[in-house]
Design a protein around this nucleic acid. Structure first.
Lengths: 198, 198
DNA sequence: TGACTGACAGATATTGAAATCTGTCAGCGA
DNA sequence: TCGCTGACAGATTTCAATATCTGTCAGTCA
């Protein structure tokens, strides 16, 4: 199944994701991963110093797949308010889609992420930076009025946490979800908005 | 220790809290509670149909001790914006104080609350109603501009969830917490604010 | 009569011995 | 030389026997 290709971190990560999908987080062992790769488990330790570091790397891959497409939106041209709204909705949709399509895998990654605290911190910072970038554009364009871009970016991230943090995923099945998101986004965008007249 | 007083639901709840504090959630049994009350465990089942219902009642008591003082603030007189800010800060402070003073007991109640889903739902609704009341006052007074009071109340509740939902308690030790709260509240209050001039 | 007891059945938790896993490393083979 | 193997020690998990707990109810006692 796995041809005699060179062993690389990348290949180990791919196979690890596969093993996690088939065995589940609790059952998946380094020995399982090694078996799927047709090597001894000692070889895996040549590339990842511990099981924890392997798990961290898997978590990072997963989170990067979330933030990469958002980076696209953040660095687009055009009016910042609409772009911020699009960016936030994309973030919510990405998380929402993941839970709906494969709740089991979502739970796996959630537990993984809980343990990979540094990886998650970096991910959050990356997202906050993207918001910050949009806010900066909005300031220049005159559409936004904010005193401190960095602080406001964190505030936006925090204020929307209910719709992107996995701890609240259970409540995303609420049928009133779209309405609640609309209300929240309207409130936040109005809070950022520069006064129209004077 | 426990005199031959009549057995009441109230007394059972008090003693149950005590037992939870001493034994911890995992170890506390109905038999322990009965022993502390100097009755057989069968007697406890006369007042609470199951261990789950006893736990629910304990969770409710705990949550009521949070919402009662907030009710005070919500029904005060005076300008709504300042009152909303005070109400939210009181909510954050109540939760924050609980974690800091007795993290173990906080963890116990957190687990308890996770299982008492109906009780928690009612608690959240009660809080949202209080916000709604303040927003209504603000509408009348002309300080707030909102299209739907109920929806906006939910949005405020959701937007501040990071600072009152126990799932995020671990992150409340961030030294930048006060600054982040200030930024979030400023953003939200600006979002609710009625335009000053025309 | 009605609040309480205590023995009971079935469900759940604990425990300790056995199995498996993680992480290391000396040595093998290309 | 360099990547890999496989055996090993100590840590962790599993599993089945045992103990404890939950929820019930016929019966006691004030």
């Amino acid at each position: 199944m796995n041809e005699a290709v060179v062993l690389t971190p990348e290949r180990i990560l791919e196979v690890t994701e596969d093993v996690l999908r088939r065995f589940g987080l609790a059952k998946a062992t380094v020995v399982d991963v090694a078996r799927a790769l047709d090597v001894s488990h000692g070889s895996v330790y040549r590339y990842f110093p511990s099981k924890a570091s392997l798990r961290d790397a898997v978590a990072k891959r997963w989170l990067d797949r979330v933030s990469a497409p958002l980076e696209e939106i953040a660095s687009e041209e055009g009016p910042a308010p609409a772009r911020l709204e699009r960016w936030l909705r994309a973030l919510f949709a990405a998380k929402y889609t993941k839970v709906c399509n494969d709740p089991e895998m979502f739970a796996t990654y959630l537990t993984l992420a809980r343990e990979a605290r540094d990886v998650v911190r970096a991910h959050k910072e990356r997202l906050a930076d993207q918001i910050e970038h949009i806010l900066s554009d909005g300031l220049e364009q005159g559409g936004f009025e904010v005193t401190d871009v960095k602080t406001s970016a964190r505030a936006i991230f925090d204020a929307t946490i209910r719709y992107h943090h996995p701890a609240h995923a259970e409540e995303w099945s609420d049928p009133a979800l779209p309405a609640r998101i609309d209300a929240l986004l309207a409130l936040l965008l109005k809070g950022l908005e520069a006064p129209k007249q004077r």
